[in-house]
């Protein structure tokens, strides 16, 4: 299984899609918002956690549509489905690889981009922590959406419609956690709820996504 993860990471680096694309998009969002909102640093400070979270959410979507579709089109998915690796593990590994190439770099870049948005010093740690806890759920929910739309030819446009509403709880609690942390309030409750969503997604969605893939392969 570690082989599949290595192969996925190698492919995403060589194909040049996932890795730089999401990070670049995130960077552009964080740079554009101050230009649009204006130079009032007090306003930026208030909206910073929300902007970073929405940016991360949209950046995550960029590389999702091809998660299973390439494998479906070139026949790899048939071969993986008949291999000794359970399809649930395949989903889990692909979501992990997606997180490592999008969620993880976004999390690490967020505090740096937070500087552009004039985030409070106390907020750096919390934006990092909330993204670290929340982004695995984004990849996992996204993998479920990608599995559902694997047979749709223009799945790229259907996927965001399907996945973005499912991202709402993660966004609400993630941004709330970062906001409370930045304002010096206790962020424990939203963080616990955020972690709950992530663990719930990791525990249940591989099975749902594998079931969706099996149906598509028929």
């Amino acid at each position: 299984m570690i082989q599949l993860l290595r192969r996925e990471l190698r492919l995403s680096v060589r194909a040049g899609g996932g890795f730089g694309l999401s990070l670049g998009f995130f960077l552009v969002v964080a740079v554009l918002v101050p230009l649009g909102v204006g130079p009032d640093s007090a306003i930026l400070r208030i909206i910073a956690p929300g902007i970073l979270w929405v940016g991360a959410l949209l950046a995550c979507l960029l590389s999702l549509d091809r998660l299973f579709q390439i494998d479906y089109e070139d026949g790899s998915l048939d071969l993986l489905a008949t291999s000794p690796i359970p399809l649930e593990s395949v989903v889990m590994i692909k979501a992990t690889a997606h997180w490592m190439t999008t969620g993880l770099p976004l999390t690490l870049a967020a505090p740096i981009l937070g500087t552009l948005l004039n985030i409070t010093p106390a907020g750096y740690g919390w934006i990092l922590a909330s993204l670290a806890i929340g982004t695995p759920a984004l990849s996992m929910i996204g993998a479920f959406g990608a599995a559902l739309t694997v047979r749709v030819r223009r799945g790229g446009s259907l996927l965001p419609l399907l996945v973005l509403p499912l991202y709402v709880p993660t966004l609400v609690f993630g941004a709330e956690c970062a906001r409370r942390g930045a304002e010096g309030l206790a962020p424990g409750t939203p963080m616990a709820l955020l972690a709950g969503i992530t663990f719930g997604a990791l525990g249940s969605l591989p099975f749902a996504a594998a079931a969706a893939l099996r149906t598509s392969l028929r």
Binding site: R7, L11, R14, A15, D74, D78
Partner: peptide, 12 residues
């Protein structure tokens, strides 16, 4: 199983 498609990754 080997189907019509080879499941080859072009970038590997």
């Amino acid at each position: 199983y080997c189907g019509h498609l080879n499941g080859i990754k072009p970038m590997l």
